[in-house]
Amino acid sequence: MSRLYAASAVLIIVLAVTAAGFFTNTRTADEIKGGLELAYSYAEKDQPEAAEECVKNVRSLIAEKRKTVCLFISHNRLDDISQEIAKAYECIAEKDVNGFLVYCRSAITLTADMQEMELPLLYNLL
């Protein structure tokens, strides 16, 4: 019977960690996506300074959340997003709005993928 209790305790821990991972991943991806979409809309409205500021905020957000998010997902996922954001930042710093839009869209897509991969959907399961 003590094994059953131990197994139940392990199950509760597993569920707690899984839920924590799911919510951390979802929330972080939401914040990154929100920041990038805002930067994208500023760039579209030809406001590169505001877009640059937004991207800067997203980069510091990633740096801040990195340690927590990497507990739950592969490091590569976040690295890929960071790379795209770094390229977008370079473009906007040089006032290359078109280049920025391409990299920013790519980063948004990768972030959406990162969020979706944790969702219990059929195409993720199969």
Partner: peptide, 23 residues
């Protein structure tokens, strides 16, 4: 590059399955 939890969680889930199934 993989988070350790990605290995740890399936092991724990298998352990729980095994104990509940044996019960």
């Amino acid at each position: 590059e993989q988070s350790m939890l990605s290995g740890l969680i399936p092991i724990m889930v298998l352990l729980v399955f095994e104990i509940f199934l044996s019960y």
